[in-house]
Amino acid sequence: MSIIAHINNLRAPRELPFTPGERAAQRVREAPDFHTLPQAERDRRVMEAMRAA
């Protein structure tokens, strides 16, 4: 099992909360225009949100 799979398994039963950075990145990904942007711009916006959180 990878470390990511292990973390996701812990989060499923709410044993491990999401970090503020992960929640900020999710809000950026939910923006209506996010999927129309080039990949580099998507990555930049997600990293910016995570740093700011």
Score class of each variant (00 low, 15 high):
residue 1 M to N: 08
residue 1 M to L: 06
residue 1 M to V: 14
residue 2 S to Y: 03
residue 3 I to W: 03
residue 3 I to Y: 02
residue 3 I to C: 04
residue 3 I to K: 08
residue 3 I to F: 05
residue 4 I to W: 00
residue 4 I to D: 08
residue 4 I to M: 10
residue 5 A to K: 13
residue 5 A to Q: 13
residue 6 H to V: 04
residue 6 H to Q: 04
residue 7 I to M: 10
residue 7 I to T: 12
residue 7 I to W: 02
residue 8 N to W: 11
residue 8 N to Q: 12
residue 9 N to T: 14
residue 10 L to M: 15
residue 10 L to S: 13
residue 11 R to Q: 09
residue 11 R to I: 03
residue 11 R to C: 07
residue 11 R to L: 09
residue 12 A to N: 07
residue 12 A to L: 08
residue 12 A to M: 15
residue 12 A to I: 13
residue 13 P to H: 04
residue 13 P to F: 05
residue 13 P to N: 05
residue 14 R to W: 07
residue 14 R to G: 09
residue 15 E to I: 07
residue 15 E to H: 14
residue 16 L to R: 13
residue 16 L to E: 08
residue 16 L to D: 14
residue 17 P to C: 12
residue 17 P to D: 05
residue 18 F to C: 03
residue 18 F to I: 06
residue 18 F to A: 11
residue 19 T to V: 11
residue 19 T to G: 11
residue 20 P to T: 11
residue 20 P to V: 11
residue 20 P to E: 14
residue 20 P to C: 06
residue 21 G to F: 00
residue 21 G to E: 13
residue 21 G to Q: 12
residue 22 E to S: 06
residue 22 E to D: 08
residue 23 R to D: 02
residue 23 R to W: 14
residue 23 R to Q: 05
residue 23 R to E: 03
residue 23 R to C: 00
residue 27 R to M: 06
residue 27 R to Q: 14
residue 27 R to T: 13
residue 27 R to C: 06
residue 28 V to I: 12
residue 28 V to G: 00
residue 28 V to N: 01
residue 30 E to Y: 04
residue 30 E to I: 03
residue 30 E to L: 12
residue 30 E to N: 10
residue 30 E to V: 01
residue 30 E to K: 11
residue 30 E to D: 07
residue 31 A to Y: 07
residue 31 A to P: 01
residue 33 D to F: 08
residue 34 F to L: 01
residue 35 H to Y: 09
residue 35 H to Q: 14
residue 35 H to A: 14
residue 35 H to D: 15
residue 36 T to K: 02
residue 36 T to Q: 13
residue 36 T to G: 15
residue 36 T to L: 14
residue 36 T to M: 07
residue 36 T to V: 09
residue 37 L to S: 03
residue 38 P to N: 08
residue 38 P to Y: 04
residue 38 P to V: 07
residue 38 P to T: 10
residue 38 P to A: 09
residue 39 Q to H: 00
residue 39 Q to A: 09
residue 40 A to V: 12
residue 40 A to F: 06
residue 40 A to M: 09
residue 40 A to E: 13
residue 40 A to C: 04
residue 41 E to I: 09
residue 42 R to S: 06
residue 42 R to A: 03
residue 43 D to P: 00
residue 43 D to S: 08
residue 43 D to L: 08
residue 43 D to Y: 06
residue 43 D to A: 11
residue 44 R to E: 07
residue 44 R to I: 01
residue 44 R to N: 05
residue 45 R to Q: 15
residue 45 R to K: 10
residue 45 R to N: 07
residue 45 R to V: 06
residue 46 V to I: 13
residue 46 V to T: 07
residue 46 V to P: 00
residue 46 V to A: 02
residue 47 M to I: 06
residue 47 M to E: 15
residue 47 M to P: 00
residue 48 E to S: 13
residue 50 M to N: 00
residue 50 M to E: 03
residue 50 M to L: 03
residue 50 M to K: 09
residue 52 A to K: 11
residue 52 A to Q: 14
residue 52 A to W: 06
residue 53 A to Q: 09
